[in-house]
């Protein structure tokens, strides 16, 4: 049989289903990729899949039962949005079927090394943003937190803030992907942000002053003053500062 290319709809369930299907078919696999990323070539045998949530669920459940980390590797690989993770997952699932739970310790296996690397990269960025997101309090007491993450980590951040700021209304806005999540103290839901507003924020790294609450700028000024004062000039070390907080994070930081 010719090597096959599996195309799926770009969702997480779609990816899992495609992997499950490829494993089940048992033939040689050339690639597994979302339809919108695929460039047709002359020689590929293409199978376009319609997402079967049931099969996807079963694969996820299998990984979860194997070890929670195995399921997390799949989730974080998807969130990384990097090309080629599907094939790594495919080869990882094969390894799991052969080796069981041991597969997770097989760190010199290229798929395990790659997926664990991605897992760490994505969770590191999510962890960093838990500290680096700056909320602006708007006139209607909504807390607005713009950021531009490299990976698609908005859901991981939202999970953190729905516990921490459960009693506040907030909105996380990923300007890189123009996706936003809104917490109304009870529920978390995806929302659309006004395009003019988003364009202004993306350009200036700050919310239009007219929309801020009355004392927002005062607290921003206090925070900047604190940030300056707490630094010890005798230990001045900007390299170390950048190491902790690389410049790509500075755009929406009130203090930089």
């Amino acid at each position: 049989m010719e090597p096959v290319v599996y195309l799926y709809d770009g969702t997480f369930a779609g990816m899992l289903h495609a992997i499950a299907r490829a494993v089940k078919d048992g033939g040689a696999v050339h690639a597994i990729t979302p339809t919108h990323r695929y460039t047709p070539t002359l020689f590929d045998t293409v199978i376009t899949l319609k997402c079967d949530a049931d099969q996807a669920d079963r694969l996820l459940q299998y990984l979860q039962n194997l070890h929670p980390l195995a399921a997390n590797l799949a989730v974080y690989a998807y969130l990384s949005g990097e090309g080629g993770v599907e094939m790594q997952m495919y080869s990882f699932v094969h390894l799991c079927l052969r080796r069981g739970k041991q597969a997770l310790s097989y760190e010199s296996h290229s798929a395990v090394a790659h997926l664990k690397g991605l897992f760490h990269a994505v969770s590191r960025e999510a962890h960093r943003y838990k500290g680096l997101i700056r909320f602006r309090i708007l006139a209607d007491d909504l807390q607005y937190g713009p950021f531009e993450p490299h990976y698609n980590i908005i859901s991981l951040c939202a999970r953190h803030f729905r516990r921490r700021l459960a009693g506040c209304r907030w909105l996380l806005h990923d300007l890189q992907r123009n996706s936003a999540l809104y917490w109304d103290t009870v529920d978390l839901q995806p929302v659309e942000v006004d395009t003019d507003f988003a364009a202004y924020v993306a350009l200036h790294g700050e919310v239009p002053a007219a929309q801020l609450s009355e004392n927002e700028q005062e607290y921003q000024q206090l925070w900047r003053a604190f940030h300056r004062a707490i630094s010890n000039p005798a230990r001045h070390n900007p390299q170390l500062q950048q190491q902790g907080m690389p410049q790509r994070y500075w755009k929406y930081l009130t203090e930089m």
């Binding site: 500290g131 680096l132 630094s231 010890n232 230990r235 001045h236 500062q241 902790g244 907080m245």
Partner: peptide, 12 residues
């Protein structure tokens, strides 16, 4: 969680 880094490189 670190929230910022000051100019002396220490985390805030």
């Amino acid at each position: 969680i670190c929230h910022s880094w000051s100019a002396d490189g220490r985390c805030i």
